[in-house]
Each structure stands twice: as structure tokens, then as C-alpha cells.
Amino acid sequence: MMDTKTNIPNNTEMTPVISLKGVSKWYGDFQALSNIDLEIKLKEKIVICGPSGSGKSTLIRCLNRLEAHQEGTIHVSGIELHERMKDIDVVRQDIGMVFQSFNLFPHLTVLENCMAGPNWVRGVDKSKAKERAIAMLEQVKIPEQADKYPEQLSGGQQQRVAIARSLCMQPKVMLFDEPTSALDPEMVAEVLDTMIELAKSGMTMICVTHEMGFARQVADRIVFMADGEIVEQNSPEEFFNNPQHERTKVFLDQILK
């Protein structure tokens, strides 16, 4: 089920889907990101963690240019993201994003939420979009909620709809910014399960999360940030068993307590 309109060139396993070189960002005088270098390959699963305020959200939001960086370069599938680019919307259509606060459209039903993107900007006709929406809702295991409005769903259900909404765009990459931190503990698992399924299907994923069990199970690489810098990045095994930096050790001590 490929879109007729494929926006960004297809990647081989070798070329990075996303690459950042020397990226820095300031909020006024405050430097939120400093000199970030990062490459993410096709089908790779990255988990970004770090203390609050370390710049994780800022980083992930730079990847679809919800935030602007001031120095360095960011390439998504070979297209550079910059201030004067013409086709940012086209790039964004290929990058799914899931927010901490779901951000579903409250005036649309679950089904309409999922149909909106493909139908409005991908040129998919209504019946096709609906077919796809139902398939994605089945994938996140809530097809029976299709005709409800978001506020009638639990937090966990809403977040799964948000994932389905992104998947309907058939993105090349999925970004997650703390998708489970607004949820009650008993709902965290259902969202994580959905994300694990998605990982198994081969999706390229970048997740900001503090769910270390998820990271251990899914991540190819864990990126640890502090004070706007990448302090260390490693495979889960190395990261948990053999952290290199003092800050990483302190962070792991706190979070795994």
C-alpha cells in the first residue's frame, strides 16, 4: 500500500535517514542544544534519555522543524532542513510524531483523526483513507473506538489513536516525545506494547522516554543527553552495564532505583 506520491527519496540501509552535524540551538541567551552530531539509519531504533531540561524534546522537535536550530545542519532523507526551505510540509508528511499530550483533534472522531492527513494532504481518496485508518486502528488494537470522539477515550487509548494517526501517513520515521509520561501506570504498558509491535515491523523510530525496560528491549542505541549535549551513546547492553560517564551513572542510579 504505497502512496502514489512518494515525497522523499527512498533510503538504502546504508545512508542515514536523519543526520545532524554540529547542531546548536538557543532560546534567547540560553543554549538548549550544543554541537549535536547524530546519525540515524533506516530501521534503526534510537532511545533518547537524560535528565529533565537536558534538551531531549528540543532535539526531537528540531528533526521535523517544529523548532529551528541556529547552527549546524540537519538532513532528513538527504533534504536539508533550514529556514528558507520550500517543502517542509512534504518532509513532515514523511515523519510521524507522537506527543506527550496526544494532541488529537477533539472535534473529529477517531476515524476522522486518522483519515485527515492522508485525505487532506496525501491525495488519498476518502474510501482508501478510511480503509487505511481502520487497518491502522486494528494495528493499535482499538478498531471498535473508531466512531468515538477523543475525549471519550482513556489516555492510553488516545495515545494509541495518535500513533495510528501518524501511521496512516505511512511515515518513514516515527518520533516519540515521552509518549507515556502523561499516562496512568496501568495504561503505559498498552502504549509500549504498540510501540514494540511497531518496532518489530521495521519502523525507524526515535523515542524520548524514561521507560528503561522498553529501551532495553527495543533500542539499537541509547543516546544519553545532559545540558544540551550528547554525553554518550551506546548499545543498551553497554549503556546499562558499563556506563562510561559519571553523569550517566548518576542518571541510571536514579532512574533504576
Binding site: N64, L66, D89, V90, V91, R92, Q93, I95, G96, M97, F99, S101, N103, L104, F105, A116, G117, W120, V121, A162, R165, S166, M169
Partner: peptide, 21 residues
């Protein structure tokens, strides 16, 4: 809420579409 704009932008919607729909 700002989140509605952000979610729409993240889906690749343009300003007019976001406003209208």
C-alpha cells in the same frame, strides 16, 4: 491550544488548511 497547531504541522498541513479544518 498550541498542541493543535503542532500536531497539524507535524502532519504536514499548511497554514490555511490548519485554520480552516
Amino acid at each position: 491550544p498550541r498542541g493543535q497547531w503542532e500536531a497539524s504541522r507535524a502532519l504536514g498541513f499548511k497554514f490555511n488548511l490548519i485554520l480552516r479544518k
